[in-house]
Design a protein around this nucleic acid. Structure first.
Length: 403
DNA sequence: CCTCCACTGGAAACCTAGGCTC
DNA sequence: GAGCCTAGGTTTCCAGTGGAGG
């Protein structure tokens, strides 16, 4: 085998040894991932039946009403939609039904949302290029596809509020009045929204059509979260490898946010990973607390890493001020850093905008304050450790010279 | 009560990189 | 190849503003 040349191998060995000796806690880790849709969804019977009732007409060949699902994150909207659609597809083996699911925030733009929809209808990459088509042309191709296939299409638009907020409701308008243009096929929309107020941004004509049927998903309470987690934990983990109080803590932490089941499940999974890594026999409260810290830490690291170069430089400029500063000072610092890189200098207007974006990501706190005679500005404070920031920014080849 | 600072944030126009049709 | 389209990031321009100091 390999000679033990490096001191490091000691640790690698001990990690492996610990992993071998330590009991595996997971039997089925997948059960605790966000993609998993359980066989039965607890505390959502009403919503399940409601969605099924609305979509059922498609089984005898008529167009179901459009449907809107509301509720905060982790209240089971997506799970319910996917569950019902899955069942629907097994009920109808024939090719007359097509079901598409797109998350607009993951797709990113209106065009990419529609392109993804088109691809899922069987249009090829050649017919749907990355760019170049107008939205109108894209919609034409989608409609033509539905019409010629004589299919009943159910299009689930997840995070529809994001689409409307960032790109308006133009394409929704087209969809809701497709009507004659796609006969003998049909198109039904299922919109999923985290934002209860997003209806205000909709054209009234779109709203009346899209909201033919509506359904609200209330947050889970702590007791319900406990039940959900117990159910999942029983499948995911070895028997008696988790403490009841760890489950309760996961439920309580997620419940205190806003009854977010996704967060509760993530928390439990990561707690399990922590326990396994430390070679523990059971998952306890400490694992959960560590998992919670780790999630926050990972989220921040990933957010910084995936930032565009300019945003990184601005973040670096912010980090030069301990205890807070304002837009003007950040801009000055930013200007002098930019000179040392191969980057273009942005205007203060743009930097101000980027600072607002960084605030939205939770990397920086940028609150607008008035300092009376001395004007109005944003009070800016870095929300992560400068050392963490330097470490991550140091990985960027375009910035290495600065450290 | 008034002024006036240091910006904010909306709007529109511009630029680049891609692709369409004819 | 000309003339059109898109997304997405940016610049330019500018009216608007909360409140400390006068």
């Amino acid at each position: 085998m390999f000679p033990l040349k490096y001191g490091l191998s000691e640790t690698v060995d001990s990690i492996f040894r610990r992993a071998k000796e330590g009991k595996a806690l997971f039997v089925n880790r997948k059960v605790l991932t966000p993609e998993y849709v359980p066989d039965k969804l607890l505390f959502r019977e009403k919503q399940l039946n409601g969605v099924a009732e609305v979509l059922a007409p498609v089984l005898h060949g008529s167009k179901p009403s459009n449907l809107l699902l509301y509720g905060k994150t982790g209240t089971g909207k997506t799970a319910v939609a996917k569950y019902v659609l899955g069942r629907l597809q097994t009920e109808t083996s024939e090719s007359k039904l097509a079901v598409s699911y797109v998350n607009t925030r993951i797709a990113g733009t209106e065009y990419r949302t529609l392109a993804e929809f088109a691809l899922s209808l069987g249009l090829s990459r050649k017919e749907i290029p990355f760019t170049g088509l107008s939205i109108g042309e894209l919609i034409n191709r989608i409609f033509e596809r539905i019409r010629s296939g004589e299919r009943h299409v159910i299009f689930v638009i997840d995070e529809i509020d994001y689409l409307v907020k960032t790109h308006g409701d133009g394409s929704l308008y087209e969809f809701t009045r497709a009507g004659d243009r796609i006969i003998p096929g049909s198109l039904s929309l299922v919109g999923i929204s985290n934002d209860l107020k997003f209806k205000e941004d909709l054209d009234p004509r779109v709203l009346s059509s899209l909201g033919e049927e509506e359904m609200v998903f209330p947050p889970y309470n702590v007791e319900e979260l406990k039940e959900i987690l117990k159910e999942r934990a029983a499948i995911a983990f070895e028997p008696s490898s988790f403490s009841e109080s760890a489950i309760n803590l996961c439920a309580a932490m997620a419940g205190s946010e806003h009854g977010d089941a996704r967060r509760a499940v993530d928390l439990l999974r990561i707690a399990g990973e922590v326990g396994e890594r430390e070679g523990l026999q059971t998952i306890d409260d400490t694992c959960v607390k560590k998992a919670s810290d780790k999630m926050e830490h990972d989220r921040i690291e990933e957010a910084v890493r995936s930032l565009p170069l300019q945003n990184k430089v601005i973040l670096l400029a912010v980090s030069r001020f301990i205890g807070g500063t304002n837009t003007g000072e950040v801009y000055l610092a930013y200007s002098s850093i930019v000179k040392k890189t191969a980057t273009e200098l942005l205007t203060q207007r743009r930097v101000s905008g980027i600072l607002a974006e960084l605030d939205l990501l939770g990397l920086v706190e940028a609150a607008v304050v008035s300092k009376g005679r001395r004007g109005r500005t944003k009070r800016i404070r870095l929300l992560l450790e400068p050392e963490t920031l330097n470490k991550i920014l140091g990985e960027d080849p375009a910035l290495t010279g600065l450290f």
